[in-house]
Computed example of a mutant assay.
Amino acid sequence: MKLRNLPPLALAAAVGVALTACSPSEPEPEESAPESASPSAPPTSEAAPAAVLPTGEPQVLATGLDVPWSVAFLGETALISSRDDGDVLELLPDGGTRVIGTVDGVVHDGESGLLGLAVDDQGRLYAYSTGEDGNRIERYGFTGEPGSLALGTGETLLEGIPAASYHDGGRIAIGPDGMLYAATGDAGNPDDAQDLDSLGGKILRMTLDGAVPEDNPFAGSLVYSYGHRNPQGIAWAADGTMFAAEFGQNTWDELNIVEPGGNYGWPEVEGIAEEGDFIDPVQQWSPEEASPSGIAVVEGTVFIANLRGEVLRAVPVADPGTATEYYAGEFGRIRAVTASPGGDLWFTTSNTDGRGDPSGDDDRLVGVEVG
């Protein structure tokens, strides 16, 4: 199979792939409509795109990655963050990678390090990482062309986000409104999630220069929503609906629809609580079958990367209380998922992060057609 807008099939030979774990036929998904799903999903537009699902056989696009955490695109060039060493990698046409720069002062301890990446329409890179004084968001320009890219000088847009060896959040994305959103964890201090004066346990919204937008729900504050434990996935449907995936503690992981000013309950509640002060998730799973990290919306489907669950989960935007699972156990832990410029689905494994069981070519970047 040749992926649209991907390196040619010669790539498979270059990186030694056609996945032996994959069936030559289309994957057999496990369909599920969990009892925990919200009984009343919010209505969506009649013009919403149809749901799409993976088709054909996945192809490994790169191997030997060191704890890849995020994938972003500068034009058609993929950029990958390496959590532990702070490197930003450029994916080359032959499946190799090269370091284009290292984010200064990255502190790796447990789950912390260089986490989310995003690129704006002016070709600037945004990076969420852990420094000596907490998590921060920085912006970089580029020099050179694809194949010889380099990071320019960085500038700090936001610092002082609570950090710890776990619960650092870390996903960033530019929304359809042109604003920069950041998912932050509670950094092991659950009460911060309910404290509007803390940046921990929140989804933040800011201008591309790091300023507070005038239409944020809390005047003078970057806080867009709160009551989050450790969200690591944010994405938008075509109608502007914002989805977020979140790690629970011991009971429920969550898929939420994010509303401005919304309180999602942590640490007062976990999962669907049906308490009027908090917004319930539209779907929930036990942590051992999920542990959701990155998410992406492609057409009418929310794709969710799952770590402990070791599956790629597909949730219809029009019916977000249901899900279909793909590749159970075939790739191990899955950390990030994104749509490529050509419309294919790309995802990264996370088997070298100290919690997985890496194979000889882990970690990997994998691509598959959807339709």
Rank of each mutant, 00 (worst) to 15 (best):
V17F: 12
S221G: 07
S45W: 00
A173F: 09
G113H: 12
H228A: 03
G227P: 04
T301Q: 02
D66A: 15
G220H: 12
S40Q: 14
T97D: 07
S165N: 14
G332L: 02
N250D: 15
I257L: 15
G134T: 10
S148W: 01
D121F: 04
A318D: 15
A323N: 10
A164D: 14
N135I: 04
G160Q: 05
G262Y: 08
S359F: 11
T322N: 08
A33P: 01
D94E: 15
T241P: 01
A296S: 14
L196D: 04
S225G: 05
D209T: 15
A21H: 05
T338S: 13
D363M: 12
G160M: 03
E30F: 07
S148K: 12
D186G: 02
L3E: 07
P39K: 12
E214P: 04
G271H: 07
L255A: 06
G123T: 11
A314G: 09
R308K: 14
L61M: 15
G154H: 03
A336F: 06
F278H: 10
T156Q: 14
L65N: 04
T102C: 03
G185Y: 06
G113F: 08
G233A: 06
D120W: 04
L79H: 02
G134W: 11
A118D: 13
W252R: 14
V282S: 07
A238I: 01
I80F: 03
G152P: 10
S340I: 09
L74A: 06
N351D: 10
A21D: 10
P292Y: 08
N230G: 07
A314D: 10
E246D: 13
A183D: 05
A314L: 08
K2P: 05
D66G: 07
A127Q: 03
R4I: 13
Y128T: 07
A245Y: 08
G200H: 01
A10Q: 13
T102A: 12
L117P: 02
A323Y: 01
D253P: 04
Q284H: 02
G354A: 08
L180W: 09
T338Q: 10
S225H: 02
Y326P: 08
V311Y: 05
R136M: 09
R229G: 08
G105M: 09
Y264F: 09
E254G: 01
R335L: 06
G96D: 13
L53N: 08
A339D: 05
T324H: 04
G95S: 10
V317R: 04
W346I: 10
G321M: 11
P34R: 08
I334V: 12
